[in-house]
Design a protein around this nucleic acid. Sequence first.
DNA 1: CGTTTAATCTATTGATTTAGTAGACTTTTA
DNA 2: TAAAAGTCTACTAAATCAATAGATTAAACG
Lengths: 144, 144
Amino acid sequence: MLSKKCKYAIHALIYLAERYEQGPVQIQVISEKQHIPKKFLEAILLELRHAKILESKKGKGGGYFLIKKPSEVNLMQVMRLVDGPIALLPCVSLNYYEHCDECRNEKTCGIRDSLIAVRDETLRILEQSTLAKIVKREKQLGLK
Amino acid sequence: MLSKKCKYAIHALIYLAERYEQGPVQIQVISEKQHIPKKFLEAILLELRHAKILESKKGKGGGYFLIKKPSEVNLMQVMRLVDGPIALLPCVSLNYYEHCDECRNEKTCGIRDSLIAVRDETLRILEQSTLAKIVKREKQLGLK
DNA sequence: CGTTTAATCTATTGATTTAGTAGACTTTTA
DNA sequence: TAAAAGTCTACTAAATCAATAGATTAAACG
């Protein structure tokens, strides 16, 4: 399951994607609108800034804003950044690979194949899920 | 990521699937062969017994054994049993559904669609991954 | 230049979950 | 009736998660 932190990150990013190229939005505002504890959100936005997804401006009129296009930010990136590996086992992770104590020899471990398949399908879907698509979808759903 | 408990459960089940219909296997033996802490394994096997996947026999010559066919036990069942929900959000979980604070209205939440797709693909693959297939695969891999 | 605004950094805390352990108890078999 | 093996209750240490507090820095504005 996604951590709360990751859910907060995604919702904050969607909020900022809806306001793409409309100037900075204060942490305070995102916090209130999306019901995210302000101090917690600060840390999350900072992380997204370090990952070059967001940029910030200090002082009056300051706040956070997207520096990547909404079509260039997807859930795969965000989840990896905030929660770490997407794979179900460290030994099938692409970005966070670790040798796995349990399966003695990786070559003959019968469960890896399945979990590699799960990983690939998951990544495929999450990579396609860009902020642009999500915002578009929300607008469509909201109109009904 | 899967918990250690879940990995232990899967490896213990594979071990028992390889010895299907060959009589009970002692906890001690599984523990040693699969490098799983004995006391921890006890609790895991008990859970699998309560779920009617395993049965046990006490006293001399006792131990644990599969009561379902290896072709009828799959990773979806085991992961759900041991680790709970497979979905990435409670509000897209089939077996552990919970209302989600973050997405104010589920109807218009733009990330649910993607996560439902991830869930469905994941379940499809895990459901196909039966103990029988895993054991077969390990034998094939081991021969090379 | 100084005040206000808003992000940044450092540190700490409480709750929950994970992983594992200890030891007494029960059942079965020989 | 003794040994073997699973069962049950309770506890604990460590890690992770979620959140908070407070001091600091940078920008804007008059």
